[in-house]
Design a protein around this nucleic acid. Sequence first.
DNA 1: GCCGTTTTCGGCCCGACTGTTTTCAGTCG
Length: 555
Amino acid sequence: MENQKLAQMFDKIADALEIKGENRFKIIAYRKASQILNNLTSDIYDHYQNDELQKIPGIGEGIAKKIKEYFETGQIKKLKEAFQGLPESLLDLLSIPSLGPRTVALAYQKLKVKNLQDLEKAIRNGSLASLPGMGEKKIDNIMKGIEFLKKALGRIPLGKAFVMVNELLKELSGWEEIKQISPAGSYRRMKETVGDIDILVTSDDPKKVMDQFTALDIVARVKAKGPTRSSIETDEGFQVDLRIVDDTSFGAALQYFTGSKAHNVKLRSLAKDKGLKINEYGVFKDEKYVAGKTEEQVYQALGLEFIPPEMREDLGEIELAQKKIPRIISYDHFPGDLHIHSTYSDGESSLKEIVEEAMKYGYKFVGIADHSKSVKYAGGLSIEKLLEKNDEIDKLQKQYPKIRILKAAEVDILIDGSLDYPDHILSQLDVVIAAIHTGFSNDPEGRILKAMDNQYVHIIAHPTGRLLSQREAYNVDMDKLLEKASRSKKAMEINAYWDRLDLNDYDCRKAREHGVKLAIGTDSHHISGMWQMVLGIGVARRAWLTKKDIYNFDI
DNA sequence: GCCGTTTTCGGCCCGACTGTTTTCAGTCG
């Protein structure tokens, strides 16, 4: 599918136009087109073939023309044009928090700053400080931004990896040469960020598999190619390793390459104690193979219960597996999502679409939570609009009796800690999610604490602020929040958004210490984003949460 | 660039915050 590729191209055009200071609405239009393409569940090529591009809301004459041009000539002239007299490396600078297009443009024009190295130099020799409107604090913030970016570089947010890996698995599973397939590594353990992506397969025709793999569309560079392991870099800069192993070793290899390193070290030492040897080929006793076909067999051979990948960090799971692994929350058993945005605010799916999709997932309930009235940029709902939406939910509920449709809202915690809807409105909602979206430096902790006093609030979303900006988090004392949440019986939300996870497994463990329930909400803005639930549950599993740790709407 | 229209042009989301200013520009969500 070319959806993502086109989306990237439009995003790049938007970036370039932004640096050039073009009409901001034009830029918004390109960004929107990019977002639409990213979220589209169908293949854009089909729309092109049926001459129905402009039927997609947000795609007009200009964008449609460019999509056509792309399918007919393989390129978009506008992209080149947008970069006329602009080095492409400037785009990297845009991802530095607190450094925006105006400053990038200025630094380029006045100081010839073209990339990160130039920028750092300009900071060191003081030339950046000489630019108009550039003071000590701004420079300081840019330096912090650079530091933040460098730390994040080279690791992929789980959400991004998830989408890519799934597409790749879908493609590879279709090859008849491949018999078994599984992702491994930190991706399989559902770490918050993933270094590179490991995929393990078994095959009778390794050469053909490797030939096809290194010739995939997404390949930008082949870093290594051999009969058992090939390594490629995708056009988005991700490294993907494909390993081919024997059927008899598949489980052992999967175990080995899933890690973590600490987990494997502990496992090997345990094996040694039992007079066994374990490596990526299998479990051996006196050089004789005893297990390795499946992971279950590997763990069994060591006298252990199967350990879910998300738990494999040597945090006591091996000791537990010698007796009884706790029954952590399972993907299959999760009953619903409480935090989905609809077209009423800034979501892209109608109530009906959300409900129908949720039923496909087998959800028992779905909470449709739109923004509250003060969040203007996200189309927050006036009270009238909220009530109108509630009426529509009532009607839908009659139409779909098998799923419980919850009247929810993501209600803003205002600057003074009060909530964006009055109590008599909140009381009409099934689920009230309180969250901060503005005034991040204005005592978020105090405001969240105050919001917890409201009897109608059920859930606190983005308590650490990770979702809100690229800045790391806002300064809250989690223990303090959790302590109060525990007293006031509020749940904290594990928010698994596209490129960020709000609560991590450490936060979740702390929540459990305090006896605070956790709500898993996707905060998705499109039905195609409901996979984010998998990430949220992944985090819950990493924290070894069981069903009773999870906030469940009482149905 | 998109969209709707009193149909070919004008509005498009907007406010807060920060740091720099002395009334505003840039960045962010």
